[in-house]
Every structure is written in structure tokens, then in C-alpha cells.
Design a protein around this nucleic acid. Structure first.
Lengths: 333, 333
DNA sequence: CGTGGCGGTGTGAGCGTTAACATTCGGAAA
DNA sequence: TTTCCGAATGTTAACGCTCACACCGCCACG
């Protein structure tokens, strides 16, 4: 009796327990008034038959899928992952499942996925990923709430949650100043990239020379380091950990000591870079995991009828390591 | 008329087109025999009303969800991502959507997700992630096919698809020998990790000294490099790109030239490491993307009633860069 | 002129579940 | 004894869609 050719339904359970489907439903969902003995009998039958309620049928009846779509605009990369995980975690706690869609920055793919998600009647959508600039809204007048995480929508009425990159940069600068550095330089990514711009703008009042814009790579960090060698400076604020590492490598092989001669702070707090660098890098952490979690919670709230439109800015955290550890200074992490 | 308080259903479309629901269904799905004019009229009505077929209802009727679950056993990391993307891509081409589950190597979470997926009536499940060893099956007697990607199941009857790590290691060794190196050393990850073991075993016949087991980190690479400095060798096969980079850094700062004095090959072909290293690293590529894609296709086949049980081994590719580029030798990618 | 066949369309059951409503039955109150 | 109430359970109509089948003309053929 254990094995059927089809999956076991609530009717099978009801029959096995000698009750009607309605009663079985009540017993399994703790609704209505039932004798404790009956309830138990139904549950035993369900266990015995290996019954798993069909979420599809339930969905059709009650109108909610308890599923959200997650569209990543850039190809899923180093930034999307913590975001996704944070979001997935927060959503899972809310009994939500996540449909994964990798749109690869291709508008056609994105629209295709959007239709798929709507067809599947997701309760909401979170859009994540890195972008050089804010992105246009997914589509106008969607029947479900949408939250943008890390990327922000160009429509200020959309709900976006983003890190306070300017604030993070400011923290980095302040720390460098706090350990006595006055001649700070900034080397970062491409000027057309809004992250590079925002971080640079926050840093510029404290800089001893104009920011060096380039790429987000270690190679560029090395190159910039070499360019700086005949200038006078005692601190580098880098736009990314990779850049920072490149800079550090060049400086050290040119005989400069880090942090004694030059203190260095990176950005992203990417474990691989930050710990492998010699010395380990102080860095600005955007708390992408928390960002994903926050986005998920905003989405859950919106689904429950309490939308929070607008740009939500979350603080960055400065993580200190040896690359800014001067004698007597605090050292963390 | 455009906006209803509820989503527009096929009845609305049928009514608007002046036909019955059955006819509307046929028109929208290209079934049965219909007058071209009728078909068009229905479609126009559907477009006009913004109709999106309810996949949930269809699923309930036809019994297939066109959804698969993807469970990552380790927390989603550097290895899972290309796997996931490859799988997602291949599945998407088969009209399948992917439910993402991050089990974080926690059996409780894994079972929870498994139940969720079964409840949602997924058509199949792919299990991905890195593991020190083969993992036990998800559960016995699942009603849907399961494919393990990268990890393999301890049950040989399960369908797993894994990279030919031994073959990859052999390729690395052969290449080193082909460029004339005879005194090869191997430094790799922890001995209890099956990847380290397998790769080392394949390399050991060609080695000039026993493999150095340690960690999967750059720091260990540096440490091992230092340990090797007073030995005689002309090539290093590293168990990972991070280790390789650590080794290279140490060797170079000790005055050894790479590749002239010592040729170095890494493993994983992780872009960030491989290109940032100086010189860029030759490396063994496990083609994780292809692995994910293959896993997805095996799953699709199994769903369509053509299971391919057993361990499927896929070849690795050697990617050559400057760290093994001796004068006159071929240089790629 | 009757009949069969076929193109075109409508009808209705059913997928598995839930929830509103109906029914039954025992016991307490009148 | 009748009546009524409430606890316990049964019945059934949805949810939106598809598919097998029924139906209805019309034309061709015998």
C-alpha cells in the first residue's frame, strides 16, 4: 500500500484515515474544530503514506505562491553572491522560495525572465547586481512589488537599497587622518563608474592630488603605484581591494614600508584579497549580505502591503587590519 | 477596461474575443483546429488585456512544473557559481526555472529545502557545491531525478558529474615535462581533501620529492615556497591558483625567475588569481560552467525518462600562460 | 435525397487543495 | 418529550487551465 504510481494526495490520506478530504485538510493545517484523536489519526495516515501537500494546488486556491524572483542584472559575480545569499536567507525565514534568473545584463533576457516570473505568479521580485550606473526600472506598472538591491532604479519612486559608499569613503579618509596621515592619494576605477565617482568625490577634499582613475584591477593598482613613486604621500585610499593590493605590491618592492611609510585602505573587504595581501588590508565593507537581507525584508513588507518606496541607504563599515596599523593603534579583525 | 482588480484570466480573454474558454486556450497554445481569423482575434484580445497565462493552474492540470531545485551543499562560493550559472543557462533553454536553495552544508537546512522542493513539485533536483569528500545521497527513493554536480554521491547508482581532476593533473605534469622540466614539486591543499589527494596521486610518479600538503591559501603557498628554497627543482605544480601565486611571489622575491628558473602551473584557472599573478599563471581549468551545463542536461534527460546513472567524468583543460612560457614554447589565452 | 466526414467551436470534467456552508448527532435546557 | 445548540464531520464549489469529447453545419459522395 505504500507505493502508488502517482503521488499521494489528500484524498488518499483522507481515505486511509477514514475521514473526508475536508476533515483531512483541517487536521493537516490545524484549522477548524476537530477531535484530537481524529487529527492524530489523519496525521498518522499522512506520515504512513508519505504525504506531501501539493503546494501548486494550494497556491491556485489561495492565490499566493510564496515565491519571489531574483533577477541579477550583471552576470552573477562577486558582488551578487553575498547579496543573493542574504536575500535568500531572509526570504527563506519568511517561508519564501527564490527563483533564480541570471539576466547577464541583457535586456532581452531580462524581459524574458520577467515574463516567466509573472507567469509563475511570484509574490515579488528583487533585482540585484552591480552596474556602472543606476538602471532603468524593470518595467512600468508591475502587478507585484519590486526591490532593487545594490543597483538602484532611476525612478526615485522605486524601492532601492544601496550602500552608503560616500560614507564608507569618508570613514576611510577619517581613519587615515586619525592615524596622522596628511598626504593622502586616491586611486580607483573608471571615472564613468558611479561607484568610482561617488567614492572619489567623498575623498577629494582630503587628497593631496587629484584622484587617479583607471580600472578595477590589480594591474592598474601596480601601475598607479609606480606612477606615484616620485610623488610625496603617506597614505593611499584605494577604490577596491584589488587596486589596493596592486599598489601595496609595487610600493613594497620599491622599498616603501606599509603601513609605516604608507598606510593603505582598500574597498569591498573581499576576503581573498584582504587576507592574502601583505600586510593584510584595512578595507571598507559594504555589508552586502546585510544589504541583501534588508532588500528581502523590504520586499516581504511590500508583499504584506507595507511598501517603503525610495532609496534606502545603508552604512558601510571600516574593517581595520595591518595595512593601517601604526604603533599603538587599534587593530581589528 | 484595461485594469481589473484581479489578474486577467483566460475567461476574460475568451469573453473579450467572443469565444469559449476552450477555444481561447487552443488559440493561445496553438492546439487543435481553429480558423486563422479566430486565432488572431483571441490573441489580439489577450494582448489588449495584458493576459499572462497562469503557470500555476497549467501546472496543476498537466502535472509538470517546469521547475527544478538547485541545492548547494557548501555555502555558495567560488566553485558553485559557475556551476549554477551553467546549469541555470542550460535549464533556461529548456524552459525550466530554477529554485535556489543554499543549504550551507547543514543537513537540517538541506532536508528542509528538500521538503520544500518536493512540496513544490519540482521536476528534478541538482545538487552542487564543493566538498572535501563525496557526500551521502540527498535521500533514498526520491520521486524526482537528482543529479550531483561537482560533488559526487557516495551511492554509485546516483548520477554525478565531476571533473577529471587526475587527468587535469596529468596534463599539467605532462606539459611541464614537455617543456623540459624534470625536477617537479607539488604543493597542494589539505591531505584529507579528496581533490588534493587525487591530484597529488596523479602527479606523484613524476615528482622529485613527496607532495607538500597544507591549505588552499596563498599564505600556505608562500610558506611552502620558502620551505623549498634550499631544495633543487625547476617546476612547481600547485594544487590551486592561490597556492601557485603564493609560491610564485616567494620564489620571485628570493630571486628565482618564473618561468625561466622555475615553471609554475596552478589549478582552477580562477581569473582573478591567474591574471593578477606575475607572471600570469598557467592553470588547469575544470570547466565548471560546462560541468553545470552537463549536469543540467543530464537532469533534463532524466526528467524526460532517459536517466543516465553513474559517475560522469569530464575532462579538464590546460590553459597556458607566461608562468610556463619558455622561449619558443606555445603560449595561449 | 440521405449519409458520412470533417473543419470549427463549445462543453465539462478534473488537476489537489481550501473554505464556506451543510449536515449530523448527542446532550442539555425547556 | 421536544427543542435547540454546538462540536465534529461531510459536501461542494471554487482557483485557472487543458483536453477529451460532443456538437453543429456544410460539402461531397453514393
Amino acid at each position: 500500500m505504500r507505493k502508488l504510481d502517482r503521488l499521494v494526495t489528500i484524498r488518499d490520506v483522507a481515505a486511509a484515515a477514514g475521514v473526508s478530504v475536508g476533515t483531512a485538510s483541517k487536521a493537516l493545517n490545524d484549522r477548524g474544530t476537530l477531535r484530537a484523536e481524529t487529527r492524530q489519526r489523519v496525521r498518522d495516515a499522512a506520515d504512513r503514506l508519505g504525504f506531501e501537500a501539493n503546494a501548486v494546488a494550494r497556491t491556485l486556491k489561495v492565490g499566493r505562491t510564496y515565491t519571489v524572483g531574483m533577477i541579477t542584472t550583471d552576470s552573477i559575480g562577486r558582488f551578487s553572491i553575498p547579496l543573493m545569499l542574504g536575500a535568500e536567507d531572509a526570504l527563506g525565514a519568511g517561508q519564501m522560495s527564490v527563483l533564480l534568473c541570471d539576466a547577464r545584463d541583457d535586456p532581452i533576457r531580462e524581459q524574458y525572465y520577467l515574463r516567466t516570473l509573472l507567469t509563475r505568479r511570484v509574490d515579488g521580485i528583487v533585482v540585484t547586481g552591480r552596474r556602472a550606473q543606476a538602471r532603468p526600472p524593470l518595467a512600468p506598472d508591475l502587478p507585484v512589488p519590486v526591490v532593487y538591491a545594490f543597483v538602484s532604479s532611476t525612478d526615485p519612486a522605486d524601492c532601492s537599497v544601496v550602500p552608503d559608499e560616500a560614507g564608507g569613503a569618508a570613514k576611510a579618509i577619517e581613519h587615515l587622518q586619525a592615524i596622522g596621515r596628511r598626504r593622502i592619494v586616491h586611486v580607483t576605477g573608471p571615472e564613468h563608474h558611479s561607484s568610482a565617482q561617488v567614492r572619489a568625490s567623498a575623498a577629494v577634499p582630503a587628497l593631496v592630488r587629484p584622484p587617479l582613475f583607471g580600472e578595477w584591477s590589480e594591474a592598474w593598482g601596480r601601475q598607479a603605484g609606480a606612477m606615484l613613486l616620485n610623488e610625496e604621500f603617506d597614505a593611499v585610499f584605494a577604490g577596491s581591494d584589488q587596486i589596493a593590493r596592486g599598489v601595496v605590491d609595487t610600493l613594497r618592492s620599491a622599498g616603501r614600508r606599509v603601513p609605516e611609510d604608507v598606510a593603505v585602505i582598500g574597498f569591498d573587504n573581499w576576503d581573498v584579497m584582504v587576507t592574502a595581501s601583505q600586510p593584510p588590508l584595512s578595507s571598507v565593507d559594504m555589508d552586502l549580505d546585510g544589504l541583501g537581507r534588508a532588500a528581502a525584508n523590504l520586499l516581504l513588507a511590500a508583499i504584506n502591503g507595507e511598501p517603503a518606496p525610495g532609496r534606502h541607504v545603508r552604512p558601510c563599515r571600516l574593517v581595520l587590519r595591518e595595512s593601517t596599523a601604526i604603533a599603538g593603534a587599534v587593530r581589528l579583525g
